[in-house]
Computed example of a mutant assay.
Amino acid sequence: MASHYRQMQVATVAGHGAAAFDSASRAVLTLHMHNKAGVKMTMPTGSVRVGDVIRLRFGLGPFSVHGSCDVTEVVDEPRRRGFTYHTRPDHPEEGEESFFVDWVADDSVVVRLHSNSRPRRWFMRLGGPVSRLAQALINRRYLRVVRKIVAAEAPGQ
């Protein structure tokens, strides 16, 4: 098994101003961004909280990948919101992933995703570069989805 964790960071400007910040934050903290991107995630409440277990499913039927994660951090500040989770033993990857929305000084709303992970299951190790590509594609899909959500909900975006 590979001992090294791989890091991946992606970011996008989702919009500008308070309405965009609220919309993007809601999309991240309610897992709406994930679900709209095709990663079905469930949690015990309507918004992530520290200690929650998030369950996920990605794929179709017998080709679905299942796993769960523990929410280890939630940030709800006037200009920064988001959360971090750590994968549980049933997850195909081992590591952490963070999803944050920052309302920066120039009024831009920036959505940032950061992951630090390595394959845990044989099929993820076997997939090698294909697994990394799939992770990169889903992260980019998350960003595309949150931009669409903000455009639909925040006036003037």
Rank of each mutant, 00 (worst) to 15 (best):
M1W: 04
H4P: 04
R6P: 03
R6C: 10
Q7Y: 02
Q9W: 05
A11S: 04
V13T: 10
A14D: 00
A14Q: 02
G15C: 06
G17P: 04
A20F: 03
A20L: 05
F21E: 02
F21N: 01
F21C: 06
S23P: 06
S25K: 07
S25N: 12
R26C: 08
V28R: 00
V28M: 05
T30K: 11
T30W: 08
T30V: 10
L31T: 04
L31Y: 00
H34D: 10
N35P: 13
G38N: 09
V39N: 08
K40A: 15
K40C: 13
K40T: 13
T42K: 13
M43R: 11
T45R: 12
S47T: 15
D52S: 09
D52R: 04
I54T: 14
I54H: 04
R55G: 12
R57H: 12
R57K: 14
R57F: 07
F58W: 06
G61M: 08
P62N: 07
F63L: 15
F63H: 13
S64E: 02
S64T: 04
V65Y: 10
V65E: 11
V65N: 12
H66A: 01
G67V: 02
S68Q: 05
C69K: 02
C69R: 01
C69D: 12
C69F: 04
D70A: 15
T72Q: 13
E73I: 11
V74M: 13
V74P: 11
V75W: 02
D76A: 15
E77F: 14
P78D: 05
R79M: 08
G82Q: 07
F83N: 01
F83D: 00
F83K: 01
F83S: 04
F83Y: 10
T84K: 03
Y85I: 09
T87G: 03
E94G: 02
G95Q: 08
E96K: 09
E96I: 10
E96A: 12
S98M: 03
S98W: 03
F99D: 06
F99P: 00
F99Y: 13
F100T: 01
D102S: 11
D102C: 09
V104Y: 14
V104M: 02
A105M: 08
D106F: 08
S108Q: 11
S108E: 12
R112A: 14
L113G: 08
L113A: 03
L113Y: 02
S117L: 09
R120S: 11
F123T: 03
R125P: 00
L126K: 00
L126Y: 01
L126M: 05
L126A: 05
P129C: 07
P129T: 13
P129M: 12
V130C: 00
V130I: 07
V130F: 07
V130T: 05
R132Q: 12
L133R: 01
L133P: 00
A134I: 05
A134S: 05
Q135W: 07
A136F: 08
L137D: 03
I138M: 12
N139T: 04
R140C: 06
R141D: 06
R141W: 05
Y142I: 08
L143M: 02
R144C: 10
V145G: 06
V146P: 07
K148S: 15
I149K: 03
V150N: 05
V150F: 09
A152S: 15
A154F: 04
A154G: 08
P155F: 10
G156K: 09
